[in-house]
Amino acid sequence: MKRQKRDPFQRAYVRGYKAGIGGRSRDECPSDNVNVREYWMSGWREGRGDQWEGMTGVAGIHRSPTATV
C-alpha cells in the first residue's frame, strides 16, 4: 500500500509550532518559499502563544498539532 504524500504546508505548520513551543526565534524559519514560510510562521505564532500560556509538557498535549495528524 502506497503512502500518500504529506501536505508540505501542514508539515511547515507543525514544524513552526514545534519551534515556537520550544522557544526558538522566528528568524530560524528554514524555507525561502513565501507560501511555506507563511504556514511556518502561523505555526510558530500559535506555538509561542501556547508557550506563553504555559501549555508546555503534559499540559499542552491536547493542543499539539501533531495529535490531529
Score class of each variant (00 low, 15 high):
1 M>E: 08
1 M>Y: 05
3 R>W: 05
3 R>F: 04
5 K>C: 02
5 K>I: 10
6 R>P: 15
6 R>D: 07
7 D>H: 05
7 D>N: 08
7 D>Y: 07
8 P>D: 02
9 F>E: 05
9 F>Q: 06
10 Q>E: 12
10 Q>H: 03
11 R>T: 12
12 A>Q: 03
14 V>C: 08
14 V>S: 10
15 R>S: 10
16 G>H: 02
17 Y>N: 06
17 Y>I: 12
19 A>M: 09
20 G>T: 12
20 G>W: 06
21 I>E: 09
21 I>D: 15
22 G>V: 02
22 G>F: 04
22 G>H: 10
23 G>S: 04
24 R>D: 12
25 S>A: 08
27 D>R: 15
27 D>S: 15
29 C>S: 08
29 C>R: 00
29 C>H: 01
30 P>N: 11
31 S>P: 00
35 N>D: 15
35 N>C: 00
36 V>I: 14
38 E>W: 10
38 E>P: 06
39 Y>C: 03
40 W>I: 05
41 M>S: 09
41 M>I: 08
42 S>Q: 11
43 G>H: 08
44 W>Y: 11
44 W>N: 03
44 W>G: 05
45 R>W: 05
46 E>G: 01
46 E>P: 04
48 R>Y: 08
49 G>K: 14
49 G>I: 01
51 Q>F: 02
51 Q>Y: 02
52 W>K: 12
52 W>Y: 08
53 E>M: 00
53 E>Q: 00
54 G>Q: 00
55 M>H: 03
55 M>Y: 09
56 T>E: 13
58 V>S: 01
59 A>Y: 05
59 A>P: 03
61 I>Y: 02
62 H>A: 09
63 R>H: 11
63 R>K: 14
64 S>F: 03
64 S>G: 03
64 S>K: 08
64 S>W: 04
65 P>M: 12
65 P>V: 09
68 T>L: 05
69 V>F: 07
